[in-house]
């Protein structure tokens, strides 16, 4: 997990040795199969800690499948099978004996559609910490407030904590889902097209939030919106399917370089809109 970028886009912060160790994430020669169908082929990449990595590529190229590999979400699909090594903090997460619940606490996920639980705003955020055994009311209050503040939602909902999580706007619901992830203090946040169901203003708010969070969290985002990848990410991975319909990593590099001077012709064609 070397080759950290010199500076992150958002904070120009230098990475400390601690940052590198905390939440270092990467995959080596990873293949993913759904039954006999290979979705992802021989992917090797290291995710940079405390920065934003965008995964882009045409529909069906394995972006979301690749994202789900990072917190073993594919385990939920019975036919899914994985080969290769996925390392997080120096541990292969697919080793037997890995606590998947603990893993998903450390690697949280935000989905395409905001999916608050049908309960109050407070209970949505407190859900995770409660599951992990925190019962003290004051401690929970503090976690809820802190998480909502980090998610830039506190000011908008502080007076209606008892209201249903489904009663707020789509953009607010998505930030509530981010607060819910933050409440369990993850190290990595995976985002699967988090803005595709949102309007442009709500989208910009989430992007702004991502930039702020990137100083403390490692963020990996799958997006169909290339402009969004260019705007928010420090690193970009471009995936494309081969003739065998399996997704491969075509190019991985600093976002500024990928969008101004990509090395690979296929990347060039895709980001200039000549195919895809």
């Amino acid at each position: 997990m070397n080759n950290m970028p010199k500076v992150a886009k958002t904070f120009n912060r230098q990475y400390t040795e601690n940052d590198r160790k905390r939440g270092s994430l990467g995959m080596k020669n990873v293949n993913l199969f759904y039954g006999s169908f290979q979705a992802v082929k021989e992917i090797t990449l290291d995710i940079h800690t405390c920065s934003i990595t965008a995964i882009i590529g045409p529909s069906g190229c394995g972006k979301s499948s690749m994202l789900r590999i990072f917190n073993r979400m594919n385990d939920l699909i019975p036919s899914a099978r994985i080969e290769g090594k996925v390392e997080f903090g120096g541990i292969d997460i697919y080793e037997p004996g890995v606590d998947v619940v603990e893993l998903r606490k450390r690697i949280g996920m935000v989905f395409q559609k905001p999916n608050p639980f049908p309960m109050s705003i407070y209970d949505n955020v407190a859900f995770g910490p409660r599951r992990h055994g925190i019962r003290n009311r004051f401690a929970l209050d503090e976690i809820v407030e802190k998480s909502l503040m980090q998610a830039a939602l506190w000011d908008e909902v502080k007076d209606k904590m008892g209201q249903s999580g489904l009663s707020i706007s789509g953009g607010q619901q998505q930030r509530l889902c981010i607060a819910r992830v933050l409440a369990v203090e993850p190290e990595v946040i995976l985002m699967d097209e988090p803005c595709s169901a949102l309007d442009p203003i709500a989208t910009l708010k989430i992007e702004d939030l991502m930039s702020t969070l990137a100083s403390n969290y490692t963020i990996v985002i799958v997006t169909h919106n290339m402009q969004q990848a260019a705007r928010v990410s420090d690193m970009t991975a471009f995936l494309m399917v081969d003739d065998d319909h399996a997704g491969r990593l075509v190019e991985y590099g600093e976002t500024a370089e990928i969008f101004t001077n990509p090395n690979n012709k296929k990347t060039e064609d895709y980001i200039t809109g000549r195919f895809g």
Binding site: Q227, F259, T260, N261, P262, T267, E268
Partner: peptide
């Protein structure tokens, strides 16, 4: 048109 890569250059 949000030109990218060689188009932007």
């Amino acid at each position: 048109q949000q030109p990218m890569a060689v188009d932007l250059r």
